[in-house]
Amino acid sequence: MPVAAEAKGWEPKIVAFCCHWCAYAGADLAGLNRLQYPANVRVIRVPCSGRVNPQFVLRAFQRGADGVLVAG
């Protein structure tokens, strides 16, 4: 990403794989408590962080994600 574009308010696109039982529940809890965070994260619910195949991470980068978060 060129510096000029960054200056225009470029924001990264982040894909988050969240475990249904903990990280996804945590994200729900953040909502219940109205904690605010930037809207450029897209959460994909998985039944366990162990379900995240490295292939999924690579695919996200391949499709243009700037960051991938695996939380569980």
């Binding site: 894909v15 994909i44 039944p47 195949n53 292939q55 999924f56 499709r63 243009g64």
Partner: peptide
């Protein structure tokens, strides 16, 4: 594979959110 969370399903989601 995991029923309900298959490789195909999750990859489709990745593709969809990265559009």
């Amino acid at each position: 594979n995991l029923k309900g969370f298959t490789n195909e399903q999750i990859l489709a989601e990745v593709d969809a959110v990265c559009l």
